[in-house]
Structure formats: structure tokens, C-alpha cells
């Protein structure tokens, strides 16, 4: 009974302990939020902090159910970590299109948010990843600390848990 008593409150326990009832929506959202697999896709400085340091020994991303996948087809989450240039933007759009629904995007760092330090006097940097793909969570910083990446993934999980069942396909249009 230990596990069942710790289950989220929106699951109703039927006396006897063997059966749980919940809504399909809550069940899907719960499972989606708890195993976000992110794409192994670093662009610049933020990749070292956001993907490597966060995934390594001290910060341990795995405990949030976050595992990296090398292929976009297996990933739910794209962390755009770093400066996005015009040359790379086309490829990022292709990668985003290759991910299967439902999919989420975290824009990490100043460059991905709006160009950051490369906003002025720069001919090659796209000023914000949200110009080509929809973004769910923005993380400020140059580069953000691993803790802020963890915070962002928690925020994203919160968002996913509030989603309506029919909504996710519309959210990416």
C-alpha cells in the first residue's frame, strides 16, 4: 500500500487496494510529464551547461525522468541550447518537424530567447528561436545554471499536467 498511498491525489483508490480509477486525461498527462525524453542536440555554450553538466553526476537530470535520445523520432522535448544561426535554423525546423507529437520546446539562454548578446551588429544570428518553432518554456541567463534547467523542466511538467486531452495537437500549429 505504500506506493498507492503516495500516488497523486487525483487517483481515486477503490477499497481493497487493487484497483485505481482516474481519468484518461490525467493518466496520459502524468505519464507524459514523468518521462520527458529530450533530444541530444547542443548548439553552443548552453549545451555544456544545460545538457552535459545537468545530465552528469552532480545535477543528475535522470531523476526527473529525463533521458537523452540521439534521434528526434524518439524525443518528446527539444532543448534549444545556444545560439541559433540562420544557417542552422533551417535544420532545427526540420528536426522539430521530425519529432513525434506531443512535443515540447525549451528555449535555453539569452541567444535562444531573443538573440542575447548577439542581437546587435550581428548578421548571422536568428533573433529568437520562437520565430521558427513554438516555445513552451524560456530560460534566461547566459548561460543559465543547471538548476534553472531543472526548474524549467519542472515548469514544463506542470504545464503538461494541465493539458486537455484534445489539446496537444492544436498546440503545435
Amino acid at each position: 500500500m505504500g506506493v498507492i498511498s503516495k500516488l497523486p491525489v487525483y487517483m481515486e483508490k477503490v477499497p481493497g487496494g487493487g484497483i485505481l480509477t482516474t481519468t484518461a486525461e490525467k493518466f496520459f498527462n502524468w505519464s507524459r510529464a514523468s518521462s520527458l525524453w529530450y533530444m541530444l542536440f547542443g548548439l553552443a555554450c548552453c549545451a555544456i551547461e544545460g545538457l552535459m553538466a545537468t545530465g552528469a553526476s552532480r545535477y543528475d537530470f535522470d531523476r526527473f525522468g529525463m533521458m537523452f535520445r540521439a534521434s528526434p523520432r524518439q524525443a518528446d522535448l527539444m532543448i534549444v541550447a545556444g545560439t541559433l544561426t540562420h544557417k542552422m535554423a533551417k535544420r532545427v525546423k526540420i528536426l522539430y518537424d521530425q519529432m513525434s507529437e506531443p512535443k515540447y520546446v525549451i528555449a535555453m539562454g539569452g541567444c535562444a530567447n531573443n538573440g542575447g548578446p548577439f542581437y546587435y551588429d550581428c548578421y548571422s544570428v536568428l533573433k529568437g528561436v520562437d520565430k521558427i518553432i513554438p516555445v513552451d518554456v524560456y530560460i534566461p541567463g547566459c548561460p543559465p545554471r543547471p538548476e534553472s534547467v531543472l526548474e524549467a523542466s519542472l515548469k514544463l511538467q506542470e504545464k503538461i499536467k494541465k493539458q486537455k486531452l484534445g489539446e496537444w495537437s492544436a498546440s503545435t500549429e
Binding site: 546587435y120 551588429d121 548571422s124
Partner: peptide
């Protein structure tokens, strides 16, 4: 290469 060309040399002329 060039997918991360951030034109730092151009920026440096204006800072």
C-alpha cells in the same frame, strides 16, 4: 562548418 558563425569579428568592430 559555419552553423555557429556568430559574426563576433563584425560585432567587435562596433564595441
Amino acid at each position: 562548418v559555419g552553423y555557429l558563425h556568430r559574426s563576433i569579428e563584425k560585432i567587435a568592430e562596433n564595441r
